[in-house]
Design a protein around this nucleic acid. Structure first.
Length: 281
DNA sequence: ATGGCAGAAGCATTCTGA
């Protein structure tokens, strides 16, 4: 089963490129970020025509996420509003449409568009850290339910200096600060594995290239789009690749899709749904 | 240190992103 994430930077501007990509790659699940459109204006039909169901959670001009899947998504959750925690004000962090989750084929798909944060001194940076802390609380609740999770999207964080073309220039700055990396590690808490790093230990692999300064042609990129899977799913993981080809399109998104291949054919869901077994592997 | 490039809103230019 192919599961992919792609920050498309406007669904309407990128629609034909996305459809071309789907026809080439044939993903089972595609999570989109930065759709930049209200739900009523999301072009659902072109995806339905290709045999997909579409779940959207968007807003005007900014943010916006969607899950496109061959198998119909169930138990759709949008934003943080369905999760309650006395220590956090989840409502504030649901005003920006940055999170949608669904159960598909026995796995919980959580699609996130983490705030960029602008700069370490910005109010937006504080918002980014608080947003990540809310995500941690959400995952703490999910963990109690013993769900197998695929947490994916645009995290706007390079997890290590291996994930930046020029660490000396950018280390400690936005998307590469200790504060962000600690918040991300707290989200993951050892319960999730970075799919890409199962297969690739070296630097030089990027999912985002700035539109400016000819960054793509110079291959000055960052790896900030990630697919994290429950550690129990690692034995089922066959591959993880970044497909940089769409970044070479004319009028491209500044992000490339990331894809994992997960073998769920022989997944014994009864075993994983028994909470007594959840941490045994 | 700054700007550079792109999209949306909307019609000149600003806001936002990463």
């Amino acid at each position: 089963m192919l599961i992919a994430t792609w920050n498309v930077n406007s669904i309407r501007t990128r629609l034909s490129q996305i459809l071309d990509w789907i026809n080439r790659v044939d993903p089972d699940i595609l999570c989109l970020q930065e759709t930049k459109v209200i739900d009523d204006s999301f072009p659902i039909e072109p995806f339905q025509d290709l045999g997909y169901s579409v779940e959207v959670y968007g807003q005007k001009s900014y943010n916006g996420v969607a899950i496109i899947s061959k198998i119909k998504a169930e138990n759709i959750k949008k934003g943080f509003q369905d999760f309650t925690d006395s220590d956090q004000n989840f409502e504030i962090f649901s005003q920006q449409k940055r999170l949608i989750s669904a159960d598909i084929n026995g796995i919980k798909i959580i699609n996130v568009y983490v705030p960029n944060g602008s700069s370490l001194e910005s109010d937006k940076f504080e918002y980014k850290i608080n947003w990540l802390n809310c995500l941690t609380s959400l995952l703490d609740e999910q963990e109690k339910k013993g769900k197998l999770i695929c947490l994916m999207g645009d995290f706007n964080i390079a997890p290590s200096n291996l994930d930046i073309y020029n660490p000396k220039k950018h280390e400690g700055g936005i998307m590469a600060s200790d504060t962000e990396r600690k918040a991300l590690n707290n989200v993951l808490k050892g319960r999730f594995i970075d799919s890409f790093r199962i297969f690739e230990k070296n630097p030089g692999h990027w999912s985002w290239w700035d539109y400016r300064n000819n960054a793509y042609d110079l291959n000055k990129g960052w790896r900030i789009d990630h697919i994290y899977i429950s550690k129990e799913l690692v034995p089922k993981l066959k591959s993880c690749v970044i497909d940089s080809l769409p970044r070479g399109n004319s009028r491209p998104s500044d992000h490339a899709p990331v894809i994992i291949d997960l073998n769920l054919d022989d997944l014994n869901l009864d075993f994983y749904e028994d909470e007594d077994n959840f941490f045994e592997i």
